[in-house]
Design a protein around this nucleic acid. Structure first.
Lengths: 221, 221
DNA sequence: CGGCTAATTAACCCACTGGATAGTTAGTAG
DNA sequence: CTACTAACTATCCAGTGGGTTAATTAGCCG
């Protein structure tokens, strides 16, 4: 994330387009994640920035495009993390576990991202659909999963012929739910899925689940 | 759901508090699910009703309380479905699968409910927290899961000592994600998780996953 | 059938909000 | 040093949206 954290206006240029843009994005990310698309206030975003509201329209055009830009940046972060994934040297079981844990960690570390995705789903992914950038990314993780599944199947470790996208969905569901629904789940079942002392428990549970699924012998499939 | 579907004003009373209330709730459910809390318009809800906006304030007090009422009713529906669950006669493996499928079916059949839960999580479950009704419900499914796990463990079918709430979270994640994130997932990975011809595939996948997890032999746990 | 109240309607209010207009200045190219 | 443009500020505005005030009527009870 190109988070802006320089001491305000000391040293750098006073008029720095890139920094102003980045600062708006930072604040907008937080504001949209906090209140949803309609609930977010452009005035509020401007107020929390060193700039004025006019600059938001100057750089992004409007609220809608600003949200799209926020989404684009948020997705680029996870793409980056996935690209740094290196599991080629591991055996398939360990590799899948590693990949699942990366997703687990990233989701936990970026609750704002999760909220943005939830919000975007409420709006039926219309901003993603409108963004060319987001349209053609896919996920680097998918290729990795595909390769691991391949080698796992060849070596006979993985019994089932599982699709990479499906497995990605399975892993994501667990990680996403834990972060996205922690509030209602906590309120209804009295359990904090994000509690620090439960972290390892759920991280292990995810890996166990995925590995069990991949290595189980299913009668008919 | 106490959905109002009588032909408008023919036959019944003109002034029917219960029906007016129910009608407002029906429309409000759709409107909140469509646009999120902040995005939903009280005027719009009123317009789609046979009543006026004033009635919403008359019966519910305000937008916030209306949303809470919508949530309360939505949750009561799933509670009901869970209560009708009868798996006592099945063996643990079949029973768990049955329960998972019930969750799967219910989530798929009630996308508006899923959206409301997503929305409520954006708002950190503040409405659930404020509602006494929702505070003390829990989930009938939990007791069922607890019993199945117990008997599965006793009979030696289930290897691991799995917690009921955790298992509920696992099942819910998959079902919830599939419905809630179908738009972003579809836009990014080009796969419609809700496509009718994939339904059985994912329903089976869920059961396989849960059973595999419960019956896998894990080295250390 | 008279009267009382719950249910309902119509019209209004004003703070807020996304967006626009117009004018100002820092930085830089020549 | 000048002039030009990108970056920026100050202020306003029209429509919206949650909420309200006040007047009206259906339906029931005695």
């Amino acid at each position: 994330m190109t988070t802006v954290d320089e001491p305000a206006r000391s040293g750098g240029r006073l008029r720095d387009a890139a920094r102003t843009r980045a600062e708006i994005l930072d604040v907008a990310t937080a504001e949209f994640a906090r209140a949803g698309y309609a609930g977010a206030r452009v005035d509020e975003i401007a107020a929390r920035t060193r700039t004025t509201k006019r600059m938001i329209y100057y750089y992004f055009g409007g609220k809608e495009q600003l949200f799209t830009a926020v989404l684009e940046r948020a997705y680029s972060v996870i793409r980056q993390a996935e690209q740094e994934l290196n599991v080629e040297h591991l055996d398939p079981v360990a590799a899948i576990r590693r990949l699942a844990e990366l997703t687990f960690d990233h989701h936990e570390a970026h609750p704002d991202f999760i909220r943005l995705v939830s919000i975007e789903n409420i709006h039926e992914a219309e901003h993603i659909a409108a963004s060319e950038e987001l349209g053609r990314i896919g996920s680097p993780a998918l290729e990795v999963i595909r390769r691991i599944l391949e080698s796992g199947r060849e070596s006979g470790l993985f019994t089932a012929d599982v699709d990479a996208v499906d497995l990605h969905a399975m892993i994501s569901s667990f990680c996403f739910f834990r972060v996205a629904n922690r509030h209602t789940f906590g309120a209804l079942f009295g359990r904090d899925l994000i509690a620090a002392d439960q972290r390892e428990h759920y991280r292990t549970m995810l890996g166990d689940m995925v590995i069990a699924y991949l290595t189980a012998d299913r009668a008919a499939d």
